[in-house]
Every structure is written in C-alpha cells, then in structure tokens.
Design a protein around this nucleic acid. Structure first.
Lengths: 182, 182
DNA sequence: TATGTTCCATACATAACTGTATGGAACATA
DNA sequence: TATGTTCCATACAGTTATGTATGGAACATA
C-alpha cells in the first residue's frame, strides 16, 4: 500500500481531487486529459467517461474550488466570538506562508474569464468577512472599505510572490494590525 | 496606413514588442510561434530566422521586460527630490489602475521557474526603492521592512484582482499613507 | 545593375493533445 | 452465478503546435 490509495476504479471525485492537486502543483496548463490520465495511471477512456470534455472538467473543478473556498470562510465566521475578532490574530493565521492552489487559481484567472468570474465572487465573500472583522475592531466606518481592500490585496500579493523571503514576525504583524485598526 | 506600421520586413525588436503586447493581452500561453506569426501576418519562417526556438524567444522577451521594469525604477529614483519622496504621492501614482503586463508576467512566473527567477530580482529592486521612500518619510527603522513588504504586496494583489472594483480615492490613499509612515 | 546579406514562404517530419466509437473488464446485486 | 451497470483500454481521426531544410524575394551597397 504505497502512494495514494490502491483503488482500482476512479470516481468523479477522485478526478477532481487529482485535478486540484495538479492545479496547485503544476498550474492550469497541466489540466489536460492526457497528462492527468497518465499521472493517474489510467487511460483517457476514464476521463471521457466521467467528463464530457475538458471544458466540463474545468468547470467542475472550479465549482469544487469555489465551494471549498466558500466553506472555509463560513467556518471562519462561525469561530468569530473570542479570539479571532482581533485583527492581529487573524493576520497571524492568514498573512503567512504560501498557498499554491490560490496562486494557481489566480494565474489561471488571468487567462480564463470564467475562472476570473468565479474568483471575483469568492473575493467578494472574503472581503465582506474581513470588513466585519475591521468593523468589530472599531475601525472608523469611513476607513473600513479602503483598509479591508488593502489588507486583502496584501495577502494576495504575498501569495503571488514566489518564495516568501519576507516572512512577517509576530511583532511585525502586531505592528501592522495596530496601525490598520486604529 | 491602417493598423500598426506597414513595414514589409520585421526586426527582432518588432517580434519582441509584439511578444510583450501579446503577453499582456492574451497571456503566456499565447507566446507560441504559430499564433504569433499569424497575428503578425508572416510565416513561422520569420520567427525561426530571428530566434533559434521558443525558449530563446521567451528568454529574450523576459530580458526585455526586466530591462524595461528596471529602467522604470531607475527613472523613478532620479525623480526623488521634490514631491515623490512623500509616500502619498507615490501611492497615488502607483496604487491605482491595472497593469496587464505585470499581471501576465506574474501568472507566467507561477508556471515557469526561469520567469520566477527574473521576477524575483525585479521585486528586490523595487522593494529596495520603496524602502528608501519609507526611510526618507521617517518611518522607524524597525518598521521599514514589514511596511515596505506590505505596501508592495498590496500593489501586487491589486494588480492580480481582475477588475478594480475598489478604486482608492485620494482621501483613501492619504489615510493609508499617513498610517504607514507614522 | 550586380552581388552579398537579410529576411521570409513553403514543404516536410514529428510530437502532443482532443474527442469518439467500440469492446470488454470489474462490480453490485438479485 | 447470472445480469445489468459502471468504469476503463484501445484504436482511429483530426487539430495544433514544433523545428528544419531549402529556395527565393527584398534590400543595401558597390
């Protein structure tokens, strides 16, 4: 039992999971029937049984990511009561490390308008959540919109930078958070 | 005399200019000999006369962008004396609008390590420039690194967002700049 | 206008991927 | 174990790209 599972036959979900992994690791250019089949050690017959064509596969994949991203936000919102209302706490969790899948999705969105559309919707959800945090932190209403955008952009940009040479320390984040909620 | 120039024969520079335009408009996936030749209304014979192969073309294209990006920074630095030393002034110029070429380059870098390498170098140059601005603005040395990174990330993230639904007003930027140089 | 250089068209061989059609294997269940 | 359903392999046709080889057009200059 080496590798990832020893199942003989694949489900649609198997394909989509593998698709998301591939997207994160190799980018949207690798979302093709032939290479995907190879890496799953099956023929394209399997792919074309589960999906009508590449477009449908990518559409399903995108929906899969959207649901996942949205669920994550909802889970975060449910935790808003104690600690996480503080901006610094959120930033210490979110403003660090890499996110290959997010980065790949962003890159994909640059060349695919359907992806861009979905990404835009997810952005709205996240921005709304972040705005709530700022409001709860007591940021003046007139400042909420711009600061929310600024923080969100910053995380995005951080994700797009290849290596994170500039890892933020706790003190760094506390300093920034203090500014941004003043 | 319609369209872009009526020259009969193309130079290497013509090809590279067209490459950068294509990159900005259609993304790195369109940097292929066949489509590029089509849109220039010549055969691939022209392409393969000027460039050994696709890799060499892309390498030249990347060098072209790097030089341009670096020159831009140098030009900015030369202007540091009056107005531009103020962070707000810089942000009013830089933190607005779209930048399709930059966005396409970033997306490209996600899937091509050579591109990522070059982008990383350009990032360093820009970050160093931005840090100078913050220092000149009187930001405490201990805060310079994290705030520089934060601002740079924010511009990057802004570029990666498809439409700029959240355009910053002068007041927004002045507010943010005031925070970030305090 | 003759000539060498620069640039391009065309034809060919090769590779990777798409999508379809068809037969058959694997599986669950009666 | 018989049977219908689910899943996959294989073979084929078509598309789009790469890179090379070769001949010839366009150009500058003597």
């Amino acid at each position: 039992m080496y590798g990832t599972s020893m199942k003989k036959r694949l489900s649609k979900t198997d394909w989509l999971d593998h698709g998301l992994r591939t997207l994160a690791v190799s980018g949207a250019n690798s979302l093709k029937a032939e290479p995907l089949s190879r890496s799953l050690k099956v023929s394209r017959g399997s792919f074309y049984w589960h999906f009508k064509d590449i477009d449908h596969f990518q559409t399903d994949l995108l929906a899969c990511w959207k649901k996942r991203a949205t669920d994550d936000i909802i889970a975060e919102i449910k935790k808003i009561d104690g600690d996480s209302t503080r901006l610094a706490a959120l930033m210490k969790k979110a403003m660090r490390g890499t996110d290959d899948l997010e980065r790949a999705i962003r890159s994909w969105a640059t060349e695919n308008s359907a992806v861009a559309e979905t990404v835009s919707i997810v952005d709205e959800t996240r921005l709304a959540y972040l705005a709530e945090i700022l409001i709860a932190a007591g940021v003046a209403p007139s400042q909420v919109r711009s600061r929310t955008a600024f923080i969100y952009w910053a995380r995005l940009g951080q994700i797009m930078m290849d290596v994170n040479k500039t890892e933020l320390s706790d003190a760094d984040i506390e300093g920034l958070a203090k500014l941004l909620q003043s």
